[in-house]
Design a protein around this nucleic acid. Structure first.
Lengths: 206, 206
DNA sequence: GGAACCAGTGTACTTTAGTACATGATTATG
DNA sequence: CATAATCATGTACTAAAGTACACTGGTTCC
């Protein structure tokens, strides 16, 4: 791995292909320290989703499993060279999740509207924070309101969602999140949309 | 925006196109609350990189700048529908950067998962019940011990797992559940050429 | 036979959480 | 204009949750 890094630094290739089988566990972490100008693609047949996620986090730009098919491999390499990512589909969802989570600096999970549409905006904000494990005091400070007000909102939230305390609220939120994780993203049935202010069209109109 | 949300919730389209010009500043945040089953594509000519980044963080799956060219727009919509992202190239780098930044934090909670094994049998039982939303009194009754003892065990658990209260304990446990959930349903098969890969494209490549 | 660990309990105390009842301001909607 | 909804806050109170310090009894292991 050290030799590889030295070589990469000297040649500065646009893309480097690494065989997953020849990769040690510790090497994964080291990947991120390879030159930022070089994109890394891992090839190998048996990369698990978890491993691919780890690799992605370590700075790998693509994972290609069918190492026999050089035809597509070329396509992958060129895509990665052009700044794109080549990852398994399920990781795209994770990427977005992770991004949304770091956005609000709390773990602002994307929760499906189903259970929570009864909440007002304020109630929702506070509920999410509770779901993140924040205390009333902290929430109050973060929202610029009194702890008393936080409690007031929470009492409403408990009522609306049918729970007795903040822990069970958190469980509802995380259950909801899990539910949306399980959903397969491709249902072929699409409804027809009418024109509506900011809503322009769905792709059925194309 | 409220009307849009209501409509989206009812129809559950796979993809929704929103005109950037008709989007208010506050709406950006609200986007994340739209159903997770619906992918959002923003179209409009003058979306800045910063704004596109914000939109992405808010859950938008694609931004398309040339709103006149419906030919490529269709391509974009279909790509997003299939689970891909359509963002400008520079954002791909940001995505990777952001991901690397959060790695350390994730490692922290993985570590805490490893510490789960440090719990004694009794501590583990009680921790699980807490993660289930039960109160100390209930747990005490269920285990045939005093509420005081439950508290004693919990204090130990908090110490060992590095959390401050029962809610954060519950979060650690649910994180564990989620981790094992993600592993099982491995890669839904989609198409021939796709091979379960998701290409995150940059729209400058067209 | 201690040392180390686990389980259980007691008293006492501090801090959060949550509820009840009430008030005021703002905004939207019919 | 009136009514409703949302947001905010106050006082007061009850009930949990959590910590501190101390103590007993049972394994297990060197």
């Amino acid at each position: 791995m050290g030799a590889l890094r030295a070589e990469v630094e000297q040649i500065k290739p646009e893309v480097v292909l690494l065989d997953y089988g020849l990769l040690g566990a510790d090497d994964v972490v080291s990947l991120s320290r390879i030159s930022t100008q070089t994109r890394i693609v891992i090839i190998g047949g048996d990369i698990s989703e978890e491993m691919e996620w780890k690799l992605l986090k370590a700075g790998v730009r693509g994972c290609y499993r069918n190492d026999a098919d050089t035809k597509f491999l070329k396509q992958v390499v060129m895509a990665v060279r052009d700044g794109e990512l080549w990852i398994r589909r399920t990781l795209t969802c994770r990427l977005i999740d992770e991004l949304g989570r770091t956005t609000a600096k709390n773990k602002a999970y994307r929760v499906s509207l189903g259970l929570l549409n009864k909440l007002t905006q304020r109630e929702y904000d506070i509920a999410v924070r509770v779901g993140n494990g924040e205390s009333n005091k902290l929430i109050a400070k973060a929202c610029g309101i009194t702890e008393r007000t936080v409690k007031a909102h929470l009492t409403e939230v408990f009522q609306k969602l049918g729970v007795t305390d903040r822990l069970n609220l958190a469980l509802v939120l995380s259950a909801d999140e899990r539910a949306s994780l399980r959903k397969s993203p491709s249902s072929p049935v699409i409804g027809k949309l009418e024109m509506n202010r900011s809503l322009i069209s769905s792709h059925t109109s194309l």
